[in-house]
Amino acid sequence: MPDRDTKATVRNITDLARLAGVSPGTVSRALAGKSLVNTQTREKIQRLAREHGFRPNQMASGLRRQKTGVIGVVIPLGHDSRQQISDSFFMTLLGFLADELTRHGYDLMLRRVVPETDADWLDRFIGSGMIDGVIVIGQSDQFDRIEEVADGYTPMVVWGNHAEGQRHCVVGSDNRLGGRLAAERLIAAGARRIAFLGDTTAIEFAARLAGAQDVAARMGLPPVLALPTHLSPDRASEEIAGHLAAHAGEIDGIFAATDTLAALCLTELRRQEIAVPDTVRLVGFDDLPIARQTVPPLTTVRQDIAAGARGLVDLLLRRLAGETTESLVLPPELVVRETA
């Protein structure tokens, strides 16, 4: 008995998934030869793909022929489902991306996804037929999912952390180096017991903490104290207050994974009447506009978000044209102000 309608037109991965009666993610993995898909299902999908002349990279070639003039931008929030895309970092990067895409004649389609409730978030987007390519902002805890999709879909570039040997093309800062710069500054300002605010299930944050740990170990200081902190403002403020109360008098330097967390921390330090930088030194990460507006102004590690946006668009357009591109790792820069 034939599988459903074998005469149906298969234009993209979603059509093939519908025909096979499975999810787009299963199709993507099956066409990439992943062992996660059982043999029977994998062979069925591959047979249907052959019957309809569908190849693993047909998604990309089909989209290039259609030329929708739209680039998809997706923000996966696997590590913190309550984080808002109104977060200052997201809005800053999105602004630069919109400017750059417009300059090249493209519109932007934005999606915020929570992978916990949408396992096929990336497959469905790229297989929708509505976009020419996709930019993923942040790897969150979705590194493996992005890697799997990269096996069969080339017009994709990711803002995030670069790891040796990874298959997906990424643009981002050298986060480990940034973490070293932050810790070195805290120590130079007199800190000897450093804490880190952030959720290290996010790959970029884990790299920043690792860089700070490198410096603490090299200087013979105690390991950096990791204090798990979410990025959603309501949770972060409460968590920071709890961290400071629990470690009162114990820590004299704080490295916040983002400027947003650093600003919330500064507010709580003031509320608890802890002097900055006399008692506690504080360093953020990003150098967002808020870093210059806090009282006192925030010492931070700058990542060139504007250059990153240009790099994301440039690499994506080159991949749409059929090029194979390398990842782009940007150097971070320490910006010394008054909190450390």
Rank of each mutant, 00 (worst) to 15 (best):
R111V: 03
R310V: 04
A98R: 15
F89P: 00
F125G: 00
I13H: 03
R112D: 01
L31E: 04
V224G: 06
L101D: 13
V301P: 12
P331H: 03
V27Y: 05
P297Q: 01
V158G: 04
V171Q: 11
D287P: 06
H230R: 14
I274M: 11
D144E: 15
T26M: 14
V283F: 01
H79I: 08
R192N: 13
L36Y: 02
I187Q: 10
R47E: 14
W159M: 14
M59W: 03
L93K: 02
D278N: 15
G138W: 09
A202I: 10
R292M: 13
R111I: 00
H168S: 10
T294F: 11
V158L: 11
R145P: 03
D151T: 14
G242S: 04
A307Y: 00
N161P: 04
G322I: 05
V134D: 06
D144P: 00
V27C: 10
F143R: 15
A307W: 01
I85N: 00
M156G: 02
T294K: 01
D5G: 10
T102A: 14
R318M: 09
E148P: 01
F90P: 12
R318A: 10
R112H: 09
L97E: 08
D107S: 14
Q139Y: 05
E51P: 00
R208H: 03
A98V: 08
A183G: 02
L19C: 07
M91I: 13
Y106S: 09
I240R: 05
L16R: 12
V114A: 03
A257V: 06
G127L: 04
A119T: 14
Q40T: 12
F125K: 04
A60M: 12
R111S: 09
H162A: 13
L269G: 02
